[in-house]
Design a protein around this nucleic acid. Structure first.
Lengths: 239, 239
DNA sequence: CGTCGATTTGAAATCTATCAACGATGGTGG
DNA sequence: CCACCATCGTTGATAGATTTCAAATCGACG
């Protein structure tokens, strides 16, 4: 089981949470499910009556484009909520898929409503989560729209470094990233073949090493310089 | 002045609004500003204390990428709110710019809070607006990431047709679209030159005509077929 | 009339996709 | 234990899409 809730870890980067808020959050940990790797957690069209919070593992949002190609909309890591605003839409218009094995916590909407009314700071925190996800989405749009292949991959790797770091999952500039090159292509709008060649270049330039489903960033500054990475959009550093 | 509020028009596609809700929304119309074309309405870094609702005209969200290129994140049309979730982030991490002259309504956050607590349906409506914008953002990501140039432009033109139609601003398959080819490029991740060539192809294929800042869609089905357009993601048709 | 921005055109360069194939790896069942 | 299969990473050659650069045209407007 998870002793330290990554959701709380993430929120505490930005908010000061009183002890009762944290225990209330922890106590909602009742429904924890374990899901195998590479399986759909939620499908487009579903109307989930719970919120899904990732406690452990690695997943993604994706859509199948009308041409049949899979597109990864965003990566989900511990502390991320999979389906924050679907209740407003009625049905999912995208799917959620695990990439590694995952521990997922299901929180009924009523519990969320109860928590946010009892603790206004949680209401603000959830809105903040949603707004940060939108900001990441905007940055992905820029990534795919206006950066060349090398920068796209580099930028994505920088983003994941910062996001994993925010939940204390980075040690010596390396983090778990159990994604295939095909996944990376679907996330950056590139072909598998081209992703492969880009990764080779980044490796030759001594910027990163991809080994055993882990990314080792050898030269953080070099990678960030190549990607022109500016982490402001992640809104993690309290201003 | 505006007699029919496009925001209400949009919401009534999805929600049944009681008369008192509508009059409450209308009466908030106090602060209406007129802004000239091609001017920044809000800048990145600002912390606006109002919500900005477009009543008339055409605008866009944009960011300047670290390489200096302007990227258009989304188009804003009458009935759209420019900065729905910035209050959760503290400061804007993007900018808003008018493309045509605009009438913009400024609503103080307190008024919004008051309205949403008095009328829960408005709270749901705002969440719905936010969720739809996220869905559009996802589709733009797919557009730029996985479609070829012709499809990108065609898809964007289809989307705008449906969105303008939802606020009754389409007559005989044509709508106001006061955007330059450079803007279109910034929105689709293409160069001006290439946008120009794509538009010529679409014109030659008798799919659209671009004249006097208006788009005339000559062959709706043909355009939608080329773009493989499916309007489901706009969540406008009540299921 | 001259200027500025927007559209258009042409030619060449570059990036990325496509196609096809091979090797490595890991799991599975006989 | 080995053969088999599926998935993933890798490579080479070629085609195609898009960018880049440079310049011409057009239209609106003071």
């Amino acid at each position: 089981m998870i002793e330290t809730n990554p959701f709380i870890t993430k929120l505490e980067r930005r908010f000061v949470l009183a002890t009762d808020v944290k225990t209330a959050l922890q106590s909602a940990t009742a429904h924890v499910h374990t899901i195998g790797p590479r399986t759909d957690l939620i499908r487009g069209g579903d109307t989930p009556e719970h919120l899904h919070l990732i406690l452990h593992g690695f997943a993604c949002r994706y859509k199948i484009a009308s041409g049949g190609e899979r597109c990864i909309i965003s990566y989900l890591i511990p502390g991320d909520i999979c389906d924050l605003n679907v209740s407003a839409l009625g049905a999912m218009d995208y799917s959620i898929r695990t990439l590694s094995a995952c521990e997922v916590m299901r929180i009924p909407h009523e519990v969320i409503d109860d928590l946010t009314t009892r603790y206004p700071i949680l209401d603000r925190a959830l809105r903040w989560c949603s707004a940060v996800e939108e900001a990441i989405s905007r940055e992905w749009l820029i990534n795919v729209g206006r950066r060349v292949a090398d920068q796209r991959i580099a930028h994505l790797l920088c983003e994941m470094l910062v996001r994993f770091n925010a939940i204390n999952l980075v040690t010596t500039d390396s983090y778990n990233f159990p994604t295939t090159q095909a996944d990376l292509g679907d996330a950056t709008g590139l072909t598998v073949v081209h992703v492969n060649r880009v990764l080779q270049r980044l490796r030759n330039d001594k910027l990163i090493v991809f080994k055993e489903r882990k990314v080792h960033v050898l030269d953080v500054n070099g990678l960030a310089r190549l990607a022109r990475f500016d982490q402001g959009y992640l809104h993690l550093t309290s201003t």
